[in-house]
Amino acid sequence: MTTTEASPVHDVDFKLELYRSQVALRRFETRAYDLFLENYVKGTSHLSIGQEAIAAGVAAAMRPDDWTFATYRGHAHTLARGVAMTPVFAELMGRSNGLMAGKGGSMHLTSVEHGVMGSYAIIGAHLPIACGAAWSAQYRGTDQVAVVFFGDGTVNIGAFHEALNFAAIWKLPVVFICENNLYMEYTRTSEVTAVTHPAADRAAAYGLEPILVDGNDADAVYAVARTAIERARAGGGPSLIEAETYRHGGHSRADPGKYRPDEEVALWKSAERDPVSRYRTRLLELGVDEPTLARIEADVDAEVDAATEAAKAGAAPGEDLLMKDVWANGGAEWRN
């Protein structure tokens, strides 16, 4: 079992950017939750609070033309690729200035121009789709890599196994990243999974090396992702990474997460475990001064505030969008 420790030295600017990214994801999600409570965001939403190091660390290891495939818990993965906050907030609010003009919603964030090739709300569905993108890159010789994020619950659905085998036999440039936050929806994953490490223990079944990483350590995530992405880019085939983490909140908006022991939640929220707090401490230990970090945090807060207001200012989507873009010709006609 490979456990990757914190990556070797990077320059401080790189680490400050990684910190900024994690703070942005945290504060975006915190604001998204508030907007729910204020009824600006309807429907449902699945937040990544507590899991930011994975989205941020992996994105830092990707090339701009690489592809991200995310789940319905995909706000963080979308933002981490450089998508601006305003269109994401606006999409959550169902506004015409949303990332998909309000037609997708929280669970389907997509920005092709940023390589975010969709957020998928059916468990496991996007793993084979990511394989297809990787196949396309392989066929066209573009060196692009597909990175696909999913939760621990996904390892028990058929599409996971089909995709892993498929990627392995075709040596596809795809990196599978399991964010093991210990709970599949409302149930502890260990109660419904035959192995201890839901993804890593399955790797051998596909001829892959088991890779476990501390998913709350952005440096460690970055290092392991970089290795896997470079291997994929070089024609070395897929990797399956299990990143151990924890979601601070419930599964979705409707879930207070009461099925989890208080002491467990407290442990994972503690400064020693929480990815953002941990990274902050690490930077201070590396000699970054407090005002530098405070400035990053203030900048992010200002960005979140401005994006919130800009999103709220968007109009509701008009009727012109309703019958648009079922087909590639832009329309929805199915008969003459």
Partner: peptide, 20 residues
């Protein structure tokens, strides 16, 4: 392909969305 209909169609979808 293997007997993996989800993988077959997922592969087709991913390839199509990226220009094939």
């Amino acid at each position: 392909t293997p007997i993996s209909e989800q993988a077959i169609l997922g592969a087709a979808m991913g390839a199509a969305m990226t220009g094939l």
